[in-house]
């Protein structure tokens, strides 16, 4: 099966550059780029390499266990998954209206999650690119280099 994203007409004749793993991002990934002799890019794809099967193995478990289980889908945004599962449970048990406290609680949790994820993304992961530049020395382009240069 071929995708619209497979833009190279003859991938077999092209040079492949892989960025594997994609680092300083929140998650697992791999990027492949196909170039011709003149270094012209013909195809770029991001591959999602992780498969765990939560969709299947939560079946047959007590439903109140699921929010706690799906937190483990992602250690960076566990709250988002927890609340998504909580929403599914609302639908299962017929809770169509949240109490004001529950609603505020869930919003607060989401805000906390967003704050934490952004702090991680900016300070630990992407600030080296922004402060040092994309083509700076690889051995310094990380949080440790940032702490030394811009304490």
């Amino acid at each position: 099966m071929s995708f619209a994203l497979e833009t190279a007409a003859h991938p077999e004749n092209l040079r492949r550059v892989a960025i594997d793993p994609v680092s300083r991002v929140e998650g697992h990934g791999k990027v492949t780029i196909l170039l011709d002799d003149k270094n012209k890019v013909h195809q770029v794809r991001l591959h999602i390499v992780e498969f765990r099967g939560f969709e299947k193995f939560i079946q047959g478990r007590p439903y109140w266990e699921v929010p706690v289980m799906v937190q483990r889908l992602c250690g960076i945004c566990p709250v988002s998954h927890h609340l998504a599962a909580s929403k599914a449970l609302d639908a299962i048990v017929g809770a169509h209206h949240l109490t004001p406290t529950a609603e505020k609680m869930r919003r607060l949790m989401h805000y906390g999650q967003i704050l934490q994820s952004h702090a991680l993304h900016f300070f630990h992961l992407c600030s080296p690119d922004l402060l040092f530049g994309f083509d700076s020395d690889v051995s310094k382009r990380n949080i440790v280099g940032i702490a030394e240069k811009h304490p």
Partner: peptide, 10 residues
């Protein structure tokens, strides 16, 4: 740090 999600060592 050598390879780590915090660095760009592959």
């Amino acid at each position: 740090f050598d390879r780590s999600p915090l660095t760009d060592i592959k």
